[in-house]
Write a protein that binds this DNA or RNA. Structure first.
Lengths: 412, 412
DNA sequence: AGGTATTTGTTCAGCGATTGAATTATTTGC
DNA sequence: GCAAATAATTCAATCGCTGAACAAATACCT
């Protein structure tokens, strides 16, 4: 879990510089062309003198570098464009999932500079062994990052389950984990990242949350508020509000899989009845399509479904349509409640989006009061299956961009 | 609608003072005993010198005043306690509802210093006439406030309907309003409040949202995140996350009344089927209890229901239990999605809470995955029926507390 | 009663960061 | 080759916080 925005504290002299460092760096990160110092001055309202001073700090700290000036028409001294540095701090993203481990490194600009996927069925593997393998991959990633001039400033780990404030995995049903003290187990190994003030060494978070963050920071930038749905065996949602992930009182938000869509319907392992998961979960779709899931590795089930649907197989089409309708009922409720205008289908849903989107949209049209005034977009995720790991790594670098003072003031 | 938190901009010299004014004033507002300057210094991390300077500004601006020192054991110069001023700025709260108009004035400390309720059936009244009556009441309120040394710094109007960014009422079904340009109609009258920088002259917002804000700022302070449900003819929810109202992309969040609880159930006027409103709306409960709503003024229907339930009337008890179950299905979904730990039943639900809470809690227990680890509280609102107007006025003064520089820098 | 310890609040020199104007740097257009 | 234009830097002035010394007001002790 991660703290929210700037913790409000005493504003001292140095706070000014901290704020302006973040302001200027944020502008550089958000710009679609390398801005000059003068551009930044007009954009931020600071004077050019201040911007120069701030940029000098950022350059010295390897957070930005000067790029070739964009050719400009007209007279005048040419501007020197500023871009996020491709050396300096980077984020380490980790993911443990049912049938793979992923490690990746993302730089300040959001580029994936290293990626490893290790395919294996992790269910029979003990948590500490799975984490040990992950540490191995991470160590290689760190070495590769160092070769590229990158320093790992922090790490985030995505797990498909419920994580509490301390980073302990309370329950990851599909992985078979229960009460796994991940930070403790990882601290038995030598540290994976350098110590940077204001950047936690390790954040453990829900896979759906981090995938949503990945989507949020993907290029081109999308809306600041949306619902990202990860349809795997369970169905998780990441809720992004005003450019920030909403985690709920204890970090357990997004349990969309247990929204009731048929209140007196099939019993669910959660104890309720008629939960969405029973109608739009991967197992439910596969079963409805007449496939035998046991015969398929988990990661090919959706691919197979997409093939069948592509071929026009009636059972598959019906199964997807029914799942989409159930999903639409739940999503309509969420949209009514939160007034979101964008829904992203991610994880296992992404490749099935062509068949899921229409029934989802139909339910939204029918059930959302305000849809008449402003339409709701439903689209597949642009990131691949490793969205969660990329989002995890991205969350680290976003934190540095949001609060560069910590990195700049680090020892050394 | 209102802007979100502190708009991130250039941090200039004066920003420091603005931040510290807000920091210190916020501490004074949040303290349960009048703090001394020295208390504030240790609490905020500022030096006593700075706190003194900041407090001097606040005193000069009539935002705080010195109270009798709390008797303290031990040696030392006695402290002078600081409290929010009972003179100075105040907020004007307005509400238009189906069968009444309300106007109230709330001071910085959150005390209601003036309140008028004008009972009348507003449905047959044209919007401009209803607003004209409201302006009349507001003018009296302003005069009364002035007599008490209060200056109205801004106003907020609660309307049971959908309001867009510009303050226009797009649709208020129970009032019969559609596309009513409230700010424009009100600007035809002389201004109701003084002009204060950073405080909008008039905010128009949904009644459920403002009632939730009222609950948020009621004493004693409750949790920072909760769901406030206003059960009137329609069912609206105010979502408070981390001490801030969540309004959604266009300010239309909280339409909980149209969450599906029986997806193939009764058709609803929204076009969907099986919406919560059809099972737990006031009309549905009254009908299920065997009462004829037409014979009852709207504001006595719930009172009558409570009487019958109190007397043990089986039809009333059954109706309330069924409504509570439907409400529980919807609330369980919301709690799963947002991971909230508190649900407040407000509006017409408050007096019925003794009969509604048990079935709501039962559904939550059955359906919320995480309820086993940490229980969810369901309780009635502590505010009376005018919660929305009080919340509206409170939102004005909270804004001044959060951003005192605007008030201090006002002309004059 | 008087002195001392203790806590509160204020005063003031010092300092860091921003400002605004002047200055330097570098290019285009005539 | 020179003027105009735009970019970036330099520097005195100013604003607001800090830290320490100081003044104020009370309780406790003898």
């Amino acid at each position: 879990m991660s703290p929210t925005h700037a913790p409000v504290g005493a504003a001292r002299q140095g706070s000014l510089r901290e704020l302006n460092l973040a302001l200027v760096l944020g502008r550089i990160a958000a710009a679609d062309r390398p801005p000059s110092r003068a551009d930044l001055a007009t954009a931020t309202g600071l004077t050019r003198a201040t911007v120069s001073a701030v940029v000098e700090d950022l350059l010295a700290g390897q957070l930005v570098s000067e790029a070739e000036p964009a050719p400009r028409a007209g007279a005048g001294r040419p501007a020197r464009g500023l871009v996020l540095a491709d050396q300096g701090p980077a984020g380490l993203g980790l993911e443990v999932n049912v049938d793979y481990l992923t490690v990746c490194v993302v730089d300040l600009a959001g580029q994936v500079r290293h990626r490893t996927v290790h395919r294996a069925d992790l269910r029979p593997v003990a948590p500490e062994d799975a984490l040990a393998r992950l540490v191995d991959l991470a160590r290689q990633a760190r070495a590769d990052a160092a070769r590229q001039g990158l320093t790992l400033a922090g790490a985030a780990l995505a797990v498909p389950g419920l994580i509490d404030d301390s980073g302990q995995v309370r329950l990851a049903p599909n992985l078979g984990w229960r009460d796994v003290p991940v930070p403790e187990l990882l601290s038995a190994h030598p540290p994976l990242t350098d110590r940077v003030p204001d950047v936690p060494a390790l954040v453990v978070d829900n896979e759906a949350n981090l995938a949503a963050l990945g989507e949020l920071h993907s290029r081109p930038p999308g809306p600041a508020s949306f619902l990202h749905i990860s349809g795997e065996v369970g169905i998780g949602a990441g809720i992004v509000l005003d450019g920030a992930l909403f985690r709920g009182a204890r970090g357990w938000s997004g349990e969309i899989g247990h929204l009731p869509v048929h209140p007196q319907g099939r019993p669910c392992r959660c104890g309720g009845r008629g939960c969405l998961e029973q109608y739009a979960g991967q197992e439910a779709i596969v079963a409805a399509a007449g496939l035998v899931r046991a015969e398929l590795p988990a990661d090919t089930a959706t691919a197979r479904l997409a093939e069948l649907a592509e071929a026009g197989e009636p059972a598959a089409l019906r199964a997807l349509n029914d799942a989409g309708t159930a999903l639409g009922v739940a999503v309509a409720g969420v949209v009514n409640l939160l007034d979101l205008d964008t829904v992203v289908l991610g994880g296992g849903y992404a490749p099935l989006a062509p068949w899921l989107c229409p029934p989802v949209l139909a339910e939204i049209k029918a059930r959302v009061l305000t849809a008449a005034w402003s339409p709701v977009t439903v689209r597949p995720s642009t990131l691949g299956p490793e969205a969660a790991a990329v989002g995890a790594a991205g969350s680290v670098v976003r934190r540095i961009v949001a609060r560069p003072a910590g990195w700049l003031n680090r020892a050394g």
